[in-house]
Computed example of a mutant assay.
Amino acid sequence: MSPLDPDHPGERVRRAAVRLAALAQDGLTYAENDYDTDRYQAVAALAVDLLSTVSGADSVELAVELGRDSGYATPKVDVRGACFDEHERVLLMRERIDGLWSLPGGWADPGDTPVQAVVREVREEAGAEVDVVKLVGCWDRDARGHTPPLPVAVVKLFFLCRVVSLGAPDALETLETGWFGLDELPPLSEGRVTAYELHRCLAHHRDPSLPTELD
C-alpha cells in the first residue's frame, strides 16, 4: 500500500492531525476563557507532534507554519495558470525554491478575486500578460496525490489562460521559463503541479466547452 493511499495508516494519522490543527485554530479563535485557551493550545501541540512524527518535518517549523493563520480554519487556495502556444506547448517556470518546473501560480491573496490572483501570478512568475479563458479544475491537493503532503488543507484552482504579451519574470521567484510539449516535460515540482493536471489543461485547451472538473 502506498504511503499516499488514503487508507494507509500514516496517511490516516496525517489527515487526522490536520483536522486536529484546524479544530485547535477554531477553538483558539472562539475561546472565552483561559481554560479553553489552554486546552486548545494543548490540542495544537498534539497536532504538531503527530504531523512531525508521520512526516519527519521539524516540529518547530511546523508550529510556525500552522501558527501563521488565525480565525476560523479554512483550506488555503492555490491558483495556477496554464498557457499553450500554437504547437500545444505549455508555458512553465522553474522555481527558485526547489529548481523544479511548474505552472506559474501560488497562494491567492485576500482582496484578489481568483482571476485577479492567477493573472498576477502568471505575470510575476512567467512574465506573461494573460486573459483568463476558463476554470479547468477545482481540485483538492491531497485527493490529487501531490507530494510532499502539507500540514494544511489546500484547494487548487487551475485556469486556462491566453497569452497577450510576454515580458520578463520576477527574478526573485523564477530561475527561467520555457515552452514544453507534454511529451517532453522537464522535472516537475509535484507539490505544485502534476503531469495529469497538465494533460487535463491541454484537453480543455483543445476543447474549451468541456465542463470544469471538480473534486
Rank of each mutant, 00 (worst) to 15 (best):
D142P: 00
E95N: 15
G81Y: 11
E176P: 01
H205S: 05
H199L: 06
V18H: 01
L210K: 13
P148Y: 13
D58Y: 05
D38V: 07
L4W: 06
S59W: 11
D112T: 00
F180E: 07
W139G: 00
Y196W: 11
R94C: 10
V60S: 10
T53F: 08
G145C: 04
V48K: 01
D34P: 00
G106M: 06
R39G: 01
I97N: 09
Y196C: 07
G178M: 01
S165P: 02
D36P: 00
S189V: 00
A168I: 10
D26E: 12
G181V: 07
S59K: 11
L135E: 04
G181L: 06
A117T: 07
G27N: 05
D207F: 02
F159T: 03
C83A: 15
H87A: 13
V13W: 02
R200F: 00
D34A: 15
H204T: 07
H87Q: 15
V122Q: 08
V193S: 12
R12P: 03
G105A: 03
H204I: 09
L92N: 05
A82G: 11
R144Y: 10
S70P: 00
E125K: 15
K134R: 14
K134W: 03
P187H: 04
V132F: 07
V54D: 01
H87R: 13
G67H: 05
A24W: 04
A203M: 07
L188N: 11
Q41Y: 02
P9E: 05
S189H: 12
A22K: 05
G71T: 02
P104N: 08
G167W: 11
S52R: 10
T177C: 14
A168S: 14
D26T: 05
A73F: 00
A17I: 08
A22S: 14
S209N: 01
L28D: 07
A21E: 09
V13H: 04
L175R: 10
V13N: 03
G127V: 14
L28F: 04
D183F: 03
V152Q: 04
P9N: 06
G67T: 03
G111E: 08
V130I: 15
L202S: 10
S59E: 12
D58Q: 08
P3F: 10
S189L: 11
L185V: 04
A24Y: 05
P75N: 12
I97R: 15
K134S: 13
D38Y: 04
A171V: 14
K76R: 15
V115E: 15
G181W: 06
R68F: 07
H146E: 00
R15M: 11
A108V: 02
S70Q: 08
P104C: 06
P148W: 14
S70M: 02
G67E: 02
A168P: 02
A45H: 07
A45E: 14
A143R: 14
A44S: 13
V154P: 00
Q116N: 06
G71I: 06
Y196H: 11
V43M: 12
V77P: 00
Y196I: 03
V79Q: 03
